[in-house]
Amino acid sequence: MNSEKATRDGFGDGLVELGASNERVMGFCGDLTKSTRMHLFAKKYPDRFFNVGIQEQNMVAMASGLAMTGWIPFIATYGVFFGRAWDQIRVSVCMQNQNVKMVATHAGITIGEDGMTAQAFEDIAMMRALPNITIIQPADYWEAKHAVEVVAQIRGPVYLRLERGTSPIVTSPHASFIADRAEILRDGNDCVVFACGSMVAHAIRAREMLEKEHISVMVVNVHTIKPIDERTIVACAKKCGRVVVAEAHQVVGGLGGAIAEVLSRELPTKMGFVGMKNVFGESGKPDELEKKYELNDLGICKKVREMMGKRK
């Protein structure tokens, strides 16, 4: 965990490589080409890239049309702006089960200074209700880079949730990315922390802090939020008996909600939720915001300690 890179950079590098091996891959961007890191693909494959302008609704509808003709469109904008195209995502993409790859960057808290309108904390909830969609949020640069090729191989809509800020590397440059599978990164006995995105690194740091208090924490990277790996989630919850979910998203409807749906059915377990607590964000440096809204290692430690006070 000594070097830091952003998941959006992993996507940008991964898409350039994919462009060489798969000629059906093309790119659309809503006038945020550099911010979404699609500029690398745009430069190398100008015939397969369009800056469509600031028109997210039409970008999504057009992408479904491109998919009808055999293309694999990767379409990029900020997570918040996919929200305004939700009905197009529902009807044109998911209902028609089109092979459209939505790349949602700047999700979560690390967009920082731009403030609440730019901070996507509701997008997992909005997308998760849609049939046919796959939702992936990589934990670090390498996982994002590896995920790009897998995303192209999935037949159907994918929502790839990425972050602006850098985060520590928690996976390996050589690890293969397998969608649908939650990965146990650190073993433990007392409490399991399920996390996605940059919260995975926070969870690993929280584990190290809690070790000194003789609390043994398991850390699981749930990079695929839908369809969710029920078997691993139930097994980890069973082993630890206490569950905390950490995500840079509202505590309503996100990864925490998805895991609660599984456990309430298969293994009712008390859960703690680290996320935005039914409030919008604000401007500030990412680390200041993480601290204020407890979306960091300290926030996870606090929640785990709280759960330790509860009986299994």
Partner: peptide, 15 residues
């Protein structure tokens, strides 16, 4: 939405 889909189809065919 259908019009956007059609524009995508037209672009896809032309490409």
């Amino acid at each position: 939405q259908g019009i956007g889909q059609a524009v995508g189809v037209a672009l896809g065919l032309r490409m």
